[in-house]
Design a protein around this nucleic acid. Structure first.
Lengths: 338, 338
DNA sequence: GTTGTTTTTTGGAACGTTCTAAGAGGGCGA
DNA sequence: TCGCCCTCTTAGAACGTTCCAAAAAACAAC
């Protein structure tokens, strides 16, 4: 395995100087067309590979944006990652995605490595825990960074935060269930104490308090299997509950399967609303009502805020909340449509 | 926005030479403990950020592995990406993930950019089309690369291929449905002409031919919505069909929702087998039988094959097929369990 | 104090680019 | 023939590290 050829090898083969080769690389109009052709032929001949690291050594800006995601297996996050990436690549920026898998150590390591590689900016959906180990280096290095969807670092002036208006989402869902005549509405899913759980629950709690109803909360992992188990729990231990707002769609879909297994009819016997409105909501039967967070639009908004920051030095607002919308489908309609 | 401090600024502040600072960075035992302490203090003071690009300029190996995935929204691929990443990070390699979103142009661009950034290796689940534009540069640059899950580049001696034994999977599923007494088995989903469709279908066709049955194939996108529509199509136009092997779980899950909507009972009236065995199969109701491709194990195998290639120069076999297994659940059992 | 040995520290040459300033060659008007 | 202005090409100094060889400092033994 011999060493990679450099610009000098190309220059030697083409019988020109390294400067000329460099100019050809930048397709400068300074070089004569035929010289450029010779140089390109020489590149092909020696198997030249451009070394971007060396080039960036002079002007430390790489046009590379790092995206650190806490859970790559969650469709919500991959949808976000995909839309950010599309928006950035349209503007000529490359995106690298890394998955912290909810591990603060790994997250700190990934962020450190991206900073060292000289990314121009970072977009982070952070894991919980040890914010300082991840965010300290970012602030010290002065790399523009945004935290999205979850807030773990207080210094919003340095690291602005953007997310959805979850509180309003919880309100919309709860009011809708009340309108459907639900008597006992539960909130299901979400790990206790987490900021996002509290936000999604706050709207629910607010409406329950307004109407003087007793809140019923079942915390747990935000997974299908927890939802599935919750369906059993509610059916067996809390038969009075006739509706639920779920922490997210995965929990709601789990409950939906659980109720199907138990033979309970959604709509008639139980009204269910999810949160996120992932694609699957419209594909399952009965179709799942959900608080829609337009994650693709959110990704685009995030990307363009970051680009304005980078290119026009326009610092984003310290907190941004994207709007949400309740999508009503049959899982929450007392009298099924049609 | 002032220039980033370098090793020289640190040296000046700590009143030592740049070489000493460099040694401290590598936590060499050559420097006296107290000197090292002074240097570290100086680093903190000036806000030093290590510049890995500059360091890599000398020894062109970065310990960075690129993972290019064709569809980041598909759980099957994200599961794969996650497990590769975990296995690599355990061995001290960082992984960057990029999503080509089935776009050969974008894929070529991403691969080019990763090569230029000097990744040590590439693992690619390729998009279909224009293999030369993506794989040519890889071969020219001499970067170790593997194509996984899909084969689009013929030169396997350069770019080894690994995937699952899909043919056997199709066989297992079809035989199982026959044992359940199915009379007319269809194959549903998968875009026509694609290598992976043909492989997954080959086992089905083989068993059908052996038993002299007429194959019935419904090609289409590998999505829930296609499965959902296929349930209608089969129920209305082909009522004689009483079982199906699906191209993947998404199609099967779409059919499952469709049948629920149409009120057809899986197991009794129709037997269904999916492909991939994603987590959701065990969460839906009725639970979905599926050909299990242990994607996490596959990811680990891929990662370690790549590491052996990099570290021990042991070239992987040109083609590797991981085993598959049929997981029988209630969606395909004529007489439901218990 | 001298000499030898070990421990620390250091200057300077890489690494592969870009970019500035200057050089080479040729055409053209005086 | 000279000077001037083109067009094209090039030497050489960056950029921020690592690493080698060698210098300096510290210590030990005589």
């Amino acid at each position: 395995m011999t060493k990679r050829p450099t610009i000098l090898d190309v220059a030697r083969t083409a019988r020109v100087s390294k400067s000329t080769v460099s100019l050809v690389l930048q397709s400068s109009s300074l070089v004569k067309a035929e010289t450029a052709e010779t140089v390109r032929a020489a590149m092909a001949e020696v198997g030249y590979v451009y070394n971007r690291a060396a080039a960036n050594l002079r002007s430390t800006s790489v046009g590379l944006i790092g995206l650190v995601i806490n859970d790559l297996r969650n469709p919500f996050f991959t949808e976000f990652a995909t839309s950010v990436q599309m928006a950035l690549s349209a503007k000529g920026y490359a995106t690298v995605v890394a998955n912290s898998d909810e591990d603060p150590d790994l997250q700190a390591q990934l962020i450190g490595s991206m900073i060292e590689h000289g990314v121009s900016a970072l977009i982070i959906s952070p894991a919980y825990g040890e914010p300082e180990r991840s965010f300290g280096p970012i602030i010290r290095a002065g790399v523009p960074a945004m935290q999205v969807l979850r807030q773990v670092e207080a210094r919003r002036d340095h690291i602005p935060f953007s997310s959805f208006d979850y509180i309003r989402g919880g309100e919309l869902a709860t009011r809708h269930l009340l309108e459907q005549g639900a008597k006992n509405i539960a909130f299901v899913g979400g790990l206790e104490g987490r900021a996002i759980t509290n936000e999604r629950m706050a709207g629910y709690l607010k409406v329950m308090a307004e109407t003087g109803s007793e809140p019923l909360v079942f915390h747990g992992r935000s997974s299908r299997s927890f939802g599935n188990a919750a369906a059993d729990l509610i059916t067996n231990k809390h038969p009075e509950i006739d509706a639920a707002v779920c922490f997210n769609d995965l929990v709601a879909l789990g409950m939906l399967s659980g109720f199907a297994r138990l033979g309970r009819k959604l709509g008639k016997e139980f009204c269910l609303v999810g949160f996120d409105d992932i694609e699957e909501c419209a594909q399952v039967w009965p179709q799942l009502s959900s608080v829609s967070c337009d994650i693709a639009a959110f990704g685009q908004h995030t990307a363009s805020a970051m680009l304005e920051w980078l290119e026009k030095d326009k610092h984003p607002e310290t907190e941004y909340r994207a709007g949400v919308e309740l999508i009503v489908r049959s899982s929450s309609l007392r009298v099924p449509a049609r």
